[in-house]
Design a protein around this nucleic acid. Structure first.
Length: 519
RNA sequence: UGGGGCGUAGCCAAGCGGUAAGGCAUCGGGUUUUGAUCCCGUGUACCGCAGGUUCGAAUCCUGCCGCCCCAGCCA
């Protein structure tokens, strides 16, 4: 989301964004991670053109800048160990103390730093620190570490360096080297800004960048912490970083959220300094909005119930013409086979239906979308009283589009011909957590939504087999669905539900339930 | 209890001394062979609270309250 913000903001206001990887810590970085980010940014529709950089591109310049600081008496080589450093730093309320090595001569510092670079010392033996103020109320100014020794092969610079710069130093100076005007980052770096400016004040580079902070975007019922997201993957709670329930770019992509919707969402959330927790509804609205116009309509039955048209000829098959988009005739039509035995949605039949239920009920009539009006004559049940089949009769005069009958019925339902149906595995996703802000939970595992994934065996209209992975369609009356980009194949259809349609009936039902529970 | 931030409707968010935009959600209504879409309409917001300055304050001042961040040789 930060990617989106940086590129989005730059696109609208300043013009150009850099995609820089701050690869200052060789034990944490990997090329795999870099290419994943690049892939995500590109997919979102942003183009960094030639502005793809790495902090490691500037290691030489960074080293020179560090030498300049030493020469100016503004940095020194320390030989305290990690525990001592922490102890000397003081606490939030107590000032720190100067390191006993703080007053080494410039010559000695220069010599030691040079030898650190050459690899004469072991990891942790020496450290380059800025000489600022150990009693500063801002802990970042208490002689922050500039360089540490790391005898590790760096993925880009190999083994030529034995010392690596810290983020604050590298980031500030890289911004300056690149001529960055606005360096955008998140709120937690506000305390680092005085240090950022200190580097600029002391080193006086020709270009002076400015750091500007904004708040993170938090999504309701989701976590964004990389550590926790990683735990979800490691512990097998989700299937990977691209699990469609993950709030990662890869996850949302696989889920079927269009890039444009994500960008729109970030834009609507705005850029401020307020900690925000945005409702899912905003994201879903963006997704529905972009998919509503773009995606073609299809019919699919998620939880099939068989319907037999008793008065329809056994072997007859009619091809029904269906619009690919009700509001855009230019998107064309397709033909859907219709026959005696059909699948309809279980939810579209109710034996004891309330007054306002205008789908199928015993003795009731309903229109089959793009087909005929049918009436439910018989309800067939099994031994335990479950409805297994409906016997209906169709009205020959009501064929869709013929106009030979003005007869109107209140409800229209979708269907798929049994003989022609294509089987598919459809995965229905829901929020991963049961708490609005799972970040607040002592253990996020305790607030996991155990029903975040439901897998159903669905019946699809035949035209769906032609679709390629990552294409999104609307299953009429159900929602938007996306062909899975990983597990779908010609033989096995695997489809993800992106988001449901708005459903005012479901809302009514819910309200009715709540009314009942009150009584 | 050191420092840095933030508080405008359920969720976001404009506004920056002249009498509270907009989006999402909600709730009504209309169109509809998707209970979708679309179209109309719908909010008494003590502008965190309390004082003060002013003809006039969400905007300026003071005090208070609440929430977030910071003690990596991580980024």
């Amino acid at each position: 989301m930060s990617i989106c913000l940086n590129f989005g903001v730059s696109e609208e206001t300043f013009g150009h964004a850099y995609l820089r990887f701050d690869d200052t810590n060789p034990i944490k970085e990997s090329e795999e991670y870099v290419s994943a980010i690049k892939r995500d940014v590109y997919w979102l529709g942003f183009d960094w053109k030639e502005r793809l950089t790495h902090a490691s591109d500037y290691f030489d310049q960074l080293y020179s800048a560090a030498v300049t600081l030493i020469e100016g008496g503004l940095a020194y080589v320390d030989s305290l160990n990690a525990d001592e450093i922490r102890e000397y730093r003081g606490t939030l309320t107590k000032p720190g103390r100067n390191s006993p090595h703080r007053d080494r001569s410039i010559e000695e510092n220069l010599d030691l730093f040079e030898r650190m670079r050459k690899g004469e010392f072991a990891d942790g033996e020496y450290l380059l620190r800025a000489k600022i103020d150990m009693s500063s109320p801002n802990i970042n100014l208490r002689d922050p570490v500039l360089y540490r020794i790391r005898h590790i092969v760096h993925q880009r610079t190999g083994d030529i360096w034995n010392i690596y710069p810290m983020y604050d130093f590298a980031h500030t100076m890289s911004d300056a080297f690149e001529g960055i005007t606005h360096s955008l980052c998140t709120l937690e770096f506000e305390d680092h800004r005085p240090l950022y400016n200190w580097f600029l004040d002391q080193l006086k580079p020709p270009h002076l960048p400015r750091q500007i902070e904004f708040s993170r975007l938090n999504l309701a019922y989701a976590i964004t912490s990389k550590r926790k997201l990683n735990a979800l993957v490691e512990e097998g709670i989700v299937e990977g970083w691209d699990d469609p329930r993950m709030p990662t770019i890869a996850g949302m992509r696989r889920r079927g959220y269009p890039a444009i919707a994500l960008r729109d969402f970030v834009k609507r959330a705005g850029v401020t300094k307020k900690n925000k927790l945005i409702e899912m509804g905003v994201l879903e609205n963006c997704v529905r909005e972009s998919l509503g116009d773009e995606s073609e309509r299809r019919m699919a039955v998620l939880r099939p119930l068989k319907v037999v048209l008793t008065n329809y000829p056994d072997d007859k098959v009619e091809m029904m013409e269906a619009m690919n988009h009700p509001n855009c005739p230019e998107m064309g039509t397709r033909e859907i086979p219709f026959s005696k035995n059909l699948w309809i949605e279980r939810d579209d039949f109710m034996e004891d239906a309330p007054r306002k239920f205008f789908r199928l009920k015993p003795g009731g009539e309903v229109r089959l979308r793009f087909g005929y009006i049918i009436r439910c004559d018989d309800v067939i049940k099994n031994d335990v009283g479950e409805v297994v089949e409906l016997h209906c009769s169709y009205d020959l005069d009501t064929r869709s589009g013929t106009g030979s009958s003005d007869r109107k019925v209140k409800g229209t339902i979708h269907w798929v011909s049994c003989r022609h149906a294509v089987d598919a595995t459809v995965r229905l996703y829901d929020r991963l957590f049961t708490e609005v802000n799972p970040n607040l939970a002592e253990d996020f595992r305790a607030v996991l939504n155990t029903r975040s994934l439901e897998i159903v065996s669905a019946k699809l209209e035949p035209s769906l087999v032609k679709l390629k992975p990552e294409t999104a369609v609307q299953f009429e009356r159900l929602g938007y669905f996306c062909i899975d980009n990983k597990e779908h194949s010609a033989n096995t259809c695997v489809i993800n539900r992106i988001v449901t349609l708005r459903d005012s009936w479901a809302k009514l039902e819910k309200q009715a339930m709540q009314q009942q529970s009150k009584i």
